[in-house]
């Protein structure tokens, strides 16, 4: 079945722009703030937001990192094949920093929970905030809520939300697929 478009290319740009304004409101010039994307897809959001912050809003070299959460997941040994990790790129510690954790889609909250665990191995941050492009409401399995949200959508468990990026899929957008087996 053809997927339903939740966010088009134009709305996508506006959403990213709005998220940037919200971040600037709270973090000013981003001194003492670190932006961290969760592998694999959160890093694409991180790069896009960083580019917008740098190009449009004149934020100079915001501190960024990428974290892989594979070894912190709570579903190890519950799938047929183990997941292979992606790279973690963190050349700083987060001790006493304000961290903005980013992922493309917030669903059950388990990825973010693992992300918090992985983050804490790099020190004790002063504060951690969560930014997501899509918040799938009513599907949380853990008490985790975003601080910055691109768009809230109401979905069923057997649906799948996919964020597409110009860099990897050729165009920006968010699609909703029907009746996908739970991944």
């Amino acid at each position: 079945m053809k997927p339903r478009v939740i966010i088009t290319g134009k709305e996508f740009r506006v959403t990213i722009e709005r998220l940037c304004y919200e971040l600037i409101e709270n973090h000013g010039d981003f001194s003492g703030t670190a932006l961290i994307g969760l592998q694999p897809r959160g890093t694409l959001l991180l790069r896009r937001i960083c580019r917008a912050l740098t190009d449009t809003h004149g934020i100079v070299n915001p501190l960024t990192g990428e974290i892989d959460i594979t070894f912190y997941r709570d579903d190890f040994r519950r799938r047929e094949m183990p997941l292979l990790p992606q790279s973690t790129n963190m050349n700083f510690v987060v001790e006493s920093k304000r961290v903005i954790l980013m992922d493309d889609v917030l669903f059950t909250g388990r990825t973010v929970r693992a992300g918090l665990d992985a983050l804490l191995t790099f020190g004790r941050p002063e504060k951690v905030e969560l930014l997501v492009l899509i918040d799938r409401r009513w599907s949380r399995q853990l008490p985790i809520q975003p601080d910055y949200t691109g768009k809230c959508v109401d979905t069923r468990v057997n649906q799948k939300v996919k964020v597409t990026w110009k860099e990897s899929e050729g165009n920006d957008g968010v699609l909703l697929y029907e009746d996908i087996e739970g991944e």
């Binding site: 519950r78 799938r79 669903f107 739970g182």
Partner: peptide
């Protein structure tokens, strides 16, 4: 894959 069980599979 030790003790892998489909029944335990969770969406993530």
């Amino acid at each position: 894959r030790i003790g892998y069980s489909d029944a335990n599979a969770q969406p993530s």
